[in-house]
Design a protein around this nucleic acid. Structure first.
Lengths: 318, 318
DNA sequence: ATTAATTACATAACTGGTTATGCAATTTAC
DNA sequence: GTAAATTGCATAACCAGTTATGTAATTAAT
């Protein structure tokens, strides 16, 4: 198919569908060739019944990876064709135990020769090809089990978008963003406190002039995240990581991590050996991020914030 | 999927279907992830319109390998979504020329980023696998184009069945088979002649006793084909290949070829240097078989048969 | 010992494709 | 220049699967 050379691999689904149709079309003609009254879609059901004996509808569905209604339909058809018998004796009356009839068993013997021919024919194609389709499919099943295509695309998206994010030092023009981005999440989960107003209304006086730092994350030049490193006078800690905020519309682009990493690196640069932070366990993604940055839970530090119910620290390697 | 380890490659179709379903399921979730109102099945149509501009329904169907009604449906849906416009100006009023709307063109730009992510994700799976699914599919498309799976299975069947065929020398118990198998085809295409009756009613006297041979093809012990080597007194030829017959129910198993080859080998063994035969061009598969055995067309020999309109000979290498 | 939850299945309605068919527009044949 | 054949498309009916839903049978919970 010419088309797929032009589309590239994003058309994988379409290409698979076409190849599948082509092969199942031939499958039904192959049954005709051997004068067997058999529909290709019966194959998986027929196979497990011939191999394993009696089974319930749901058990068959699980074995062959179909939905239960699909098996119900197939069994109905095969029953009409006299290949299986339905509603066999069972203690549990909800269960519909199915098994091959004598005719079915006879067919399963007869059909073996046909299947050997089909196997050989498929083997012939595989041997003529340099890339093994059968093995490739087995690998794809395994790899997609590990991590679905959706998840892989999500990761690609995140990776690409995080490249569009720029972390820059605070400037006066970001003052209103610094406040509004923080106010957004604080008032969503808690309420603004005295200490918040001080820092957010006067970042220069309360953070920068005291030796702290503020970083701003830009997505296409637009500020979408902020984070501050506040100088601490406590003998134990050098800086507090605080006022971390990322706009909801820019979530999922790794921006929190980029801000955090930048702040930690800056602290290291400034000769710090220990960073402190406080947060609340309601903010699960934030806590998660702090763990990823290397922070460990501690307790016992005094705090001016009512909303603080978890404290963490990070020890920096020189 | 555990199942496919048990079934072997004959379940190729089922396995393909399952993998296809898995991938197209994810495809629609991927469009959601990028907030694009788009159905995966639109993709091939959208792609060719974006790349090539305006096209008729049938042209699109050919390009993407779908049926025409499928494209008609897709176009209807996309038109409702405002992505394509329908019934554009055309001199030929039967044609429905379709093109992207402004909205469609805008989407085709926007969607490029998404497709790049998808390509990268698929590439990541391919690079983790040792067998390349994409290339394998391309090869299968090519190889099945050359020779369909059905044809390959047919060949396997023929090969296997020809192994079940046994060619044995004539015995008295095959007398009635020798007659009936020949009578069957002769009276189907022509009518029985004087010379037929002589040879078929008295094979011993008219063929064997004069130094000729008769061979019988057995399929599961049952006689399904015959063929005679009749001693000729003509100075030019040693034997005539005649009375070749294969039962219609045993066609396609190479039996004619096996009988012919056996007869030719026997003649060689008996020291013959030239074999003669007569036939009729209506019997195309037979003529074809004689060519395959090495016979060449000649003319001018006298014949007792009305139905004879072609004569052939085979020169044997000592 | 009831009541609530769960399980096993059948049925209905939908989906993304197919083939079959009919009709109007166009082309070909004479 | 008309009749016959062909082309292009829409529509209908089907196919092999799916999800959603309802119901009877069984199991778990109090």
């Amino acid at each position: 198919m010419q088309l797929f050379e032009r589309t590239g691999k994003k058309a994988l689904g379409s290409r698979l569908r076409l190849l599948t149709a082509r092969i199942t079309d031939d499958a039904s003609k192959i049954y005709d060739l051997y004068n067997v009254e058999f529909s290709p879609k019966w194959f998986p059901v027929f196979f497990v019944l011939a191999e394993d004996g009696e089974k319930t509808i749901t058990a068959i569905a699980e074995d062959i990876g179909h939905s239960q209604p699909s098996v119900t339909k197939i069994i109905k058809e095969m029953s009409l064709a006299g290949l299986v018998s339905n509603n066999l004796a069972s203690i549990d009356k909800r269960k519909n135990v199915v098994g091959l009839t004598k005719k079915g068993i006879k067919l399963s013997e007869k059909i073996k020769v046909q299947y050997a021919d089909v196997d050989a024919a498929i083997e012939s194609v595989i041997s003529e090809a340099t890339h093994n389709l059968w093995e490739a499919m087995a690998e794809w099943e395994f790899l997609l089990e590990q991590k679905s295509l959706l998840k892989r695309v999500q990761e690609q998206k995140k990776l690409r978008e995080s490249k569009d994010v720029q972390i820059v030092p605070y400037e006066r023009k970001y003052k209103s963003n610094f406040k509004s981005l923080n106010e957004e999440w604080i008032s969503m989960y808690f309420e603004m406190e005295e200490a918040d107003h001080k820092a957010l209304d006067h970042p220069k006086e309360y953070i920068l002039d005291k030796g702290g730092k503020i970083f701003v994350a830009l997505l296409n030049k637009e500020p979408v995240g902020v984070c501050a490193l506040i100088k601490m006078s406590d003998g134990n800690y050098d800086y507090e990581l605080a006022k971390m905020a990322v706009s909801p519309k820019a979530r999922g682009k790794n921006i929190g991590w980029l801000l955090g990493k930048t702040a930690v690196n800056a602290a290291k640069q400034l000769g710090a050996s220990k960073i402190y932070l406080e947060s609340n366990t309601v903010l699960k993604p934030a806590i998660n991020l702090y763990y990823k940055l290397g922070f460990k839970k501690i307790s016992g530090q005094p705090t001016p914030y009512k909303r603080c119910n978890i404290q963490m620290e990070l020890t920096l390697q020189k």
